[in-house]
Design a binder for these strands. Structure first.
Lengths: 248, 248
DNA sequence: CTCTGTAATTGGTATTACCAATACTCCATA
DNA sequence: TATGGAGTATTGGTAATACCAATTACAGAG
């Protein structure tokens, strides 16, 4: 047992909590801009340094995106245990997709055998949100709800380690929110359909079909990212695309 | 090769990379103190503000611990998320093993197709260390070298995301180093043999065999942990054990 | 040797200033 | 009216400095 309780919270931790409260406040829409660092410093009664450090933590968790000269934007209300953050260069989206292709299908298959009816209902709600964001061309909401769908799916395994792995691979930022504007209608339909098929197969407890649909979903995502965002597929994804004949 | 990526790295990101390099440098022992913020600022040719913000990111990743008035201490070379370090309860080793069973076999299979000869040579050295620790009944060395073996194997995929996932599942502590004292000689042989077989199959570039051996290895680990450390197998592992007839 | 109090070290915070990237305004022009 | 571009205001990025509080190191007293 450590000392814990007696320790007073530093101003930065206090600022971080206030920022978290602000982030979780539903009145602030995803993608909207937070107050400026100078404003936050004044509001919280602290200095800009302190605010900046606190923002770094939120940024590291993928909850906000800080853009020089522009401002600080809300990206997610939940932390994404991402390795996809500043430093070590930009994330290699090719590698992220490939990693998803390796780990998500088996996770989804296992989840199919264990997920509860209540969790499935939650996933259906996520799917509706996802669909809405997709057709409303809201990139931030799309990323948020797509991540939530995948995390909820992984939580169906009832294995916190697998849920953590899935959360780690659901990046706080991705080129996906850029391409949502450029997608054709049939591409939107296909993307939504992939998720819907996964959910349908889960309700039938068809683990093998879930695995197949998840593979297809990731391959299609790779295809769309290649087409609209110049993200090349890894050799594995390229060959798998041909093997499973995922084109449209 | 993403969208332009012409964006210049900020000084803070550059500092973060240098700190990461420092953290990963094996010469710096776990628990030791890093240079002071002022020293780092001077070394990296930047200001204390910048260093502090970078340290915040490392702290958020759980890689360093910053103690007021004392200094900054190295806690982990790999980033880990919240689920791994909740101090209230020990990790659920059942769940950890199950997660390993889900993600390691496909990772190992992919690694088999990409790992370089040099990396294989490194793995052989790790295997020798592992064997030595196993038969010398040195639990700390065993844990360290077994983790290193698995991480090195995952790095063979040439995919940093998968390497990170693997690192996340190689815990710093496990019941394994307790049971090394109680293992029978034939159990030691079997455990070593599983790793050796994986490595042999990788050298033959036999991905399917590598996958099978990895599954067998994890099932055997589960068996030994159940036998000597009262770690029950998850339903999945129990059924898989019977299906693949892993007993000894 | 232990204890103790002082001084040095180190992280926490505030303030100020300036730079660079971005966003905005507004007027000249087609 | 629409458009485009120059100039300005805003915003994050960085630096430098000073001071505070917690911790540590050390010298001197017992």
């Amino acid at each position: 047992m450590q000392t814990s309780s007696a320790r007073t919270m530093t101003k930065e931790e206090h600022s971080l909590e206030q920022l978290l409260a602000m982030v979780r406040d539903e009145r602030l829409e995803l993608g909207s801009r937070l107050p400026t660092e100078r404003t936050l410093a004044e509001e919280f009664g602290t200095s800009r340094n302190t605010i900046r450090s606190a923002l770094r933590v939120l940024e590291a968790r993928g909850m906000v995106e800080v853009r020089p000269g522009s401002g600080c934007y809300l990206r997610s209300r939940e932390p994404h245990n991402g390795l996809c953050l500043r430093g070590s260069g930009n994330p290699d989206w090719s590698a992220v997709l490939e990693a998803c292709y390796v780990v998500f299908p088996p996770i989804a298959a296992l989840s199919t055998e264990r997920i509860t009816a209540g969790q499935i209902a939650t996933l259906e709600a996520r799917l509706m949100d996802l669909s809405k964001a997709l057709f409303a061309r809201n990139p931030d909401a799309l990323r948020e709800h797509m991540s939530a769908f995948l995390r909820g799916l992984a939580e169906g395994t009832d294995n916190p380690m697998l849920a953590a792995v899935a959360a780690q691979l659901c990046p706080g930022t991705s080129p996906l929110h850029e391409i949502v504007f450029f997608l054709q209608d049939y591409e939107r339909e296909a993307l939504f359909g992939d998720h819907a098929k996964i959910l349908q197969a889960m309700k039938r407890r068809d683990a093998q079909e879930v695995r197949r649909c998840m593979e297809e979903r990731i391959l299609r995502l790779s295809l769309l990212l290649e087409r609209h965002a110049d993200v090349p597929p890894s050799p594995l994804l390229r060959s798998e695309r041909e093997r499973l004949e995922v084109f449209a």
